[in-house]
Design a binder for these strands. Structure first.
Lengths: 328, 328
DNA sequence: CAACTGAATGTAACCGTTTACATCCAAAGG
DNA sequence: CCTTTGGATGTAAACGGTTACATTCAGTTG
């Protein structure tokens, strides 16, 4: 390329990068030759030389549905205007896999967003150079050494259950999220706290298993059937399960909200379109992604700031028909 | 690093890469020093030298919801076991942006999966070296020069509408997808063909606008209200709109399927949990991603194969209650 | 015991850029 | 007419690895 244009590689580089050190004439000349030869600069080589990849790594667990896409969209949306790309890895990560994934990103990314139920600071410390930019997204027991953003799972669940209790319910069941999942345990914690604060006797018989799928919600409802005194309200740890529960309740001829109050979590778009419309806890996932990305960008662009932030995006109750608080 | 271990860089490289050319003793020695120094190989430098990035680029339009995540999941799932990463770019792409995104991936990826309603072979030819591995995913008017995978949108829509016609319906409405969207136009085409083949008079009054959101589905139903002779069946170009329509119909006191048959498209997980369960067209999005990725991998690993493939993943009718074909 | 062999290691070129520094050259100043 | 100056370009050293080829050095082999 440089030879073809009769100039040095340095000049080509400068021409391509619009440096002020080249004449307009040569710049255009180089551009013309480049077009003719189909020359395109090699991103990898460039980032090797500049030590900036303009890429951020995004490590996600194998999550599904809206959450995944929303969070990535939020990240990509804030990161792209700044000229960054996303290198994503969405495998199911146990500790070793996480470490491997992290390793293979080294030298390809300027920083990473890490979302992993399995995260431990230890892994990261072993894998990354100290000072490598990392932001934790919805990770359990966040290491104080890292920036971290989470969803107000506990508070949201607490609010929902308190709402149900205030409606007069005493036997409030929960359909739990996937075992071991961070969101799931936090929501359970919120449920329990609200039950305790409402002075309702703790009863593990009211805590049903689930895994965030519609089917598991339906399953849980079927299990309730055989109880001597059925719950009068159900808090499903996400909307998918709530909708599964709704279907099972209808099948069983139990009217919502007349005979059973129902609340979900996440406030997916569909929540307002089921019948009755689903009371839920709204979380702005996209904003979660955006803020996380913004924080990482700040670390990449700005001067190293030793302060660690820990941020929680709010989860707010949105009351619709399924809980029975609204008039018909 | 090499100095610290008292060996040459070549030996370090060989040790790190488990080459058979180093003694176990030195391999372990190098590993020990590496651990002590926190040395991690630099992926970018490595791929500059080997001319393999083990990364594939994924260019997606700004799509939302399940589709996005499913397709990426499918891609990531098949690509990871082969040791590849995904560099994704999910902006809204007009021609120029697409070209820019493509350019910035050059030298960072070994090949790309391209999913863009705006795609033209021209762009790619201008941006990429001839022979650069590309697979088109659900792109309109695929250029014969590229491999391409698509959804059987036309066939799926055709099957749904024929099904409705066979149930005796004569006034079958369609709620269309987003204007200009490739899937949307293909589904419309399938609708029209099925109408024609059922010898039902074409009537643009039966073709309602929509944009794939729940709200637009509800909107369309409200518009039908004012018609002199209302349709007796609705084909919504995706499930979200169908569910929006369902809510609006219920609100209007129109019973589904007794007074109105309803069919959707995509068969999202929720389809079976709404009431009545939604008749839809099932598309295995994850498989779409998997096959596309598999095809790209074949091009990357295998010898250059001049043959271009064009593959369509099936879209199959799944009959549930909302169309009225099933007994109560 | 010298020559040969082959496995382990070292040397240095290369991948395709950027960039500090050196060089060149025309215009301006003395 | 000989400096000086400064803008445009060239040179070469990074960046951090891989790898063809050269080298070393043990253990055969004749």
């Amino acid at each position: 390329m440089a030879r073809a244009a009769g100039v040095s590689v340095a000049t080509v580089s400068r021409a391509v990068n619009d440096s002020s050190l080249v004449t307009d004439a040569t710049r255009q000349h180089v551009a013309a030759i480049a077009r003719r030869l189909g020359y395109m600069p090699h991103g990898g080589a460039r980032s090797l030389a500049t030590r900036r990849t303009h890429t951020i790594g995004v490590l996600l667990p194998d999550l599904y549905g809206e959450f995944f896409s929303e969070v990535i969209r939020g990240i990509d949306l804030t990161v792209r205007p700044a000229g960054y790309h996303c290198l994503v890895s969405s495998a199911r990560h146990n500790g070793a896999q996480l470490e491997a994934a992290l390793r293979s990103m080294l030298g390809r990314v300027d920083g990473v967003i890490l979302m992993s139920p399995e995260f431990s600071g230890e892994i990261s410390r072993r894998t990354l150079h100290a000072g490598f930019p990392v932001v934790l997204l919805n990770c359990p027991s966040p290491d104080p050494a890292f920036d971290s953003l989470t969803i107000a799972n506990y508070e949201g669940a607490y609010g929902m259950v308190r709402h149900l209790a205030e409606l007069g319910h005493r036997r409030i069941a929960i359909i739990q999220g996937a075992a071991g999942n961070f969101d799931a345990t936090e929501r359970l914690r919120g449920y329990r706290a609200a039950m305790r604060d409402a002075e309702l006797a703790p009863d593990v018989g009211l805590e049903f298993a689930g895994d965030f799928t519609e089917e598991s919600g339906a399953e849980a409802v079927r299990a309730m059937h055989e109880m001597p005194d059925r719950p009068t309200a159900i808090f499903a740890a996400n909307d998918s399960m709530a909708i599964g529960a709704l279907a099972a309740l209808r099948e069983a001829g139990i009217s919502v909200p007349d005979q059973m109050s129902l609340g979900g979590f996440d406030d997916i778009p569909m929540a307002r379109y089921v019948t009755p419309a689903l009371t839920s806890v709204h979380v702005d996932i996209s904003a979660l992604g955006e803020r996380t990305a913004a924080r990482l960008l700040a670390k990449l662009e700005g001067p190293a700031d030793a302060r660690r932030i820990r941020h929680t995006v709010p989860a707010t109750l949105v009351v619709r028909r399924s809980c029975g608080a609204l008039p018909n």
